[in-house]
Design a protein around this nucleic acid. Structure first.
Ligand SMILES: [Mn+2]
Ligand SMILES: [Mn+2]
Ligand SMILES: [Zn+2]
Ligand SMILES: [Zn+2]
Lengths: 154, 154
DNA sequence: AATTTTATTGATAATGGTTTTCATTTCTAG
DNA sequence: CTAGAAATGAAAACCATTATCAATAAAATT
């Protein structure tokens, strides 16, 4: 688990690894949640209140990180985009999501991920051939009710 | 292939099957695309220009249809919500999507759908048990470049 | 070191898809 | 017919995201 695996990507792109950018990566690397741009902005104000990082910068930085493949971007259906480091604090962890449509709770799961991966690879290959599509990524999500929301919503 | 399979759902909910609603369902049932609310609104103005159906009504109707399970709602990443009848013109057709991130083209595919279904069922069952989640639906999408966009973007 | 160039930043304004509001119209029940 | 409920659409409000732009900071060049 080498640290700061993203540094190289920044240098290669002629981009500067500034303190706002480091702070945003830091926040993402220390959470298991899926914060929105505003979530990150608010965390910055609380914990790093020495500097005054603008919401615009948060949005801009996230877009850069997404384009470099350092961060993944998700829409879980609650009207705001949510973000997640592509490589977790403990190294790589490919996973998919379970989304509660009532309270918005997100669960990362890795169960069945190998079987899924195998099927997805095969499907991607088949689809690429049949539709001449060049597939770059896939998205799998399950929607439903979490334990709490099942009880509170009969 | 019984026609107007949705009538029952409307009656059961105490909702009226008005002409704007019928027109919107009609448009959805005659396309293989995935129109946005505005797409539907514009089609209404062109083809059914006798009446003057407001964009608000389109949004409202779509939400009702989604809540009744008659229509599916998708986010393909282009900033607008897109809709599709849950049961196609030729009866049921469960499928997933291939999305071109360059031009927004959407391909419905049913290849591998049986294998996917089998794995999804198994995964849903496993996840439901492990996380006590009550799963209602799944989402699978592949993102990449369509044939055209591969050529025009080297 | 001084100067030029380039990248970054954040306050503000603008954008644009979607929702709310609300007065009016249409349908339904009695 | 009449009272109540549901539906409609124009306009205004909402709100996450993006564009503008002048100011700042860092790198490159002289
Ligand atoms: Mn996750
Ligand atoms: Mn489709
Ligand atoms: Zn929940
Ligand atoms: Zn394309």
């Amino acid at each position: 688990m080498r640290k700061c695996w993203w540094r190289g990507k920044f240098e290669g792109a002629g981009l500067r690894l500034t303190s706002p950018r480091l702070a945003i990566i830091d926040i993402l690397s220390k959470t298991t949640k899926h914060p929105s741009a505003e979530d990150i902005y608010l965390t910055l104000r609380q914990k790093y209140n020495n500097d005054n990082i603008g919401l615009t910068t948060v949005y801009r930085t996230l877009e850069i990180l997404v384009n470099m493949g350092i961060v993944y971007k998700f829409d879980f259906g609650d009207g705001r985009t949510r973000y997640e480091l592509s490589e977790g604090p403990d190294g790589f962890r490919h996973h998919h999501h379970l989304v509660c449509t009532e309270c918005g709770r997100i669960i990362d799961y890795t169960d069945f991920i190998d079987e899924e991966k195998e099927l997805l690879d095969r499907t991607e290959k088949g689809l690429a051939e049949k539709y001449h599509f060049q597939i770059h990524k896939h998205l799998i999500q399950f929607y439903g009710l979490c334990e709490n929301c099942q009880l509170n919503k009969p």
